[in-house]
Design a protein around this nucleic acid. Sequence first.
DNA 1: TAACATTGTAAACACGTGTTTACAGCCCGG
DNA 2: CCGGGCTGTAAACACGTGTTTACAATGTTA
Lengths: 348, 348
Amino acid sequence: MKKTEINSVEIARLAGVSRSTVSRVINNYANVPPETRRKVMEVIDAYNYVPNLSAQVLAGKGTRTIGLFVIEAGRVSGDMLTNLLLASVVEHASARGYYVLTYIIRNTSDADNVRGVKDAFYQRRVDGGIFIGAANEEPLIEELIGEGFAIGVVDQHLPDRNEGNRIVANFDNAYGMSLAVGYLSELGHRDIGIVNGDMNRYSGVDKYNGFLDAMREHGLAVHEPWVRPGSFHEEAGYQSARKLLEEEKRLPTAMIMANDSVAFGAIRAFQEAGLSVPADMSVIGFDDHALSARYKPALTTVAIDFGEMMSSLTDYVIGHIEGAEGTAIRYMSRSKLIRRESCRPIGQ
Amino acid sequence: MKKTEINSVEIARLAGVSRSTVSRVINNYANVPPETRRKVMEVIDAYNYVPNLSAQVLAGKGTRTIGLFVIEAGRVSGDMLTNLLLASVVEHASARGYYVLTYIIRNTSDADNVRGVKDAFYQRRVDGGIFIGAANEEPLIEELIGEGFAIGVVDQHLPDRNEGNRIVANFDNAYGMSLAVGYLSELGHRDIGIVNGDMNRYSGVDKYNGFLDAMREHGLAVHEPWVRPGSFHEEAGYQSARKLLEEEKRLPTAMIMANDSVAFGAIRAFQEAGLSVPADMSVIGFDDHALSARYKPALTTVAIDFGEMMSSLTDYVIGHIEGAEGTAIRYMSRSKLIRRESCRPIGQ
DNA sequence: TAACATTGTAAACACGTGTTTACAGCCCGG
DNA sequence: CCGGGCTGTAAACACGTGTTTACAATGTTA
């Protein structure tokens, strides 16, 4: 076992003071004379002394580390959006001098996985945490919030009980949905369908309600059979579109997809059935996936600044760790519509 | 400050044994009677006791954490390949029960960034580390290897001095290059150019040498003006292609690009100049970027299994941490050619 | 049966830092 | 001139675990 070369005892000896004086210098306490402070700092710099983290933590200080927990059913490497979120958090936390401990959770009912997350908190590896991909009311998260840890979650409801340490980041899906419906309405579409996302995710429910509201606002009728259940990935989009084609004789002229991956899958199903996008079917996605601009047809989508969202969330979590007491925060970022090739006006 | 609810003293009291017996049970030592062991385990399970990590580290045990350091000049979020590598390491380490501490380094000559990395090791946050994107002979890495830490690096030379704790992962770029040149040769191409990557990266040098060797093997002459300097990103590909078009009257019929991003940039430059790919110019990339299959034209590329590479590298680093002494390791993964649309036979 | 090896446990120490307590030296006002 | 507040330092303690040492109880051999 490698021993740390130098400790505060050595520094104190070399500077000719006591160890507690060294501690006070490092932690910027008041009652230490300028001349003494200067001398101690000199020795610290000369020997590249860094306080031992484990000892600091043991003595009651924080770790300056936040945990990033990615809950993924499938392989995380495949999901480019997850990677982007992950990188955004790491980048922003690094800039604020925080480390990020990343952990992948395959299954929130798997004992080992749950244990791994809890250990991160109870062994005092992390001061706070951010969860990506968690369902609403996930017991693990509720427990950690109950324990008082600073927890940031993406895409969840903000419950009535407003604990000060629950930080929620969402997008304004309702507004995005009204942009999408409004645009299709402008193009003359009246028969509009939707493939929903997971209904145990906040954004799934929010987009669904937003769709109903937006249709009402624009005076359009919702045709139940065109509202299809789904999930936030490509294969779900493919299957939902196929079932729609099988079951329904009359089709909508436009469909809004839970996100761009779903749109890719649905478009594939449409094309296999001999339908052209956008000539026979207009399609709008969500999220502005990295592939969307280069897709054929280039996908019209409701864009969202994920980087900004994760930066803000990271900021709030770190802020809470550093003592900013407060009420629960719900961060919302504004969506905007990116017009590309996948939508056509009705009647050419 | 939240106090840990329960410690080994409590466990010992509840089990009616001494604290050292608890320690021996946890660490699976021999000299503890089965009945005592059972009773202690029962209490540990009943109270969900987890040893405090900081105390363990302070007492000389490891952290079961590896550091992942990503050296990036630009924004890391934009680089999908980096995200994939990062996710692969996290995923594989998690599976082995290790945590991953991720840190972004913008600039290896920036004092704060260097300090951040050193702190991770000297403060005993991590047991070992993996570096992505580091140049050859990076002093920071050489220092850490000199200190005896288990260090994995991607895309670097394996120097003559074979420290046991230096673990290097590379791809067989020379073989990949011979696949690319061989394929173009089969298609009838004799005038083949290349846009190189960074020459301070192992893969840059290796691809360049591999190209020269492969051309010689296939009896093809290297035309110096068609060997262009470059770097591993899209903009460099665009600029290199533009300069080639400006400076050279006679053009090659096919070009090999340092990677797929470079290829995207170069193809854009060719198309802007009125050249069609592949009709006027065949192009081969490297890495099978996520976009390559959907690009127009779909890009022919030398594929590489990055996930497998990072898994192996992570394995070796963890193995070394857990005591597997040994010589330096150089891991090599086999490349394979993926034929798509961006290459055409000569004379139709 | 006595000397000795073996086994299992308890107590003490080490790890390095932050904080609390005790105390010495100083200045100032009564 | 003396007592009390103030300032700065030293020593002791707490944090929780792993390891070492000392020792008691038990089993074994001459």
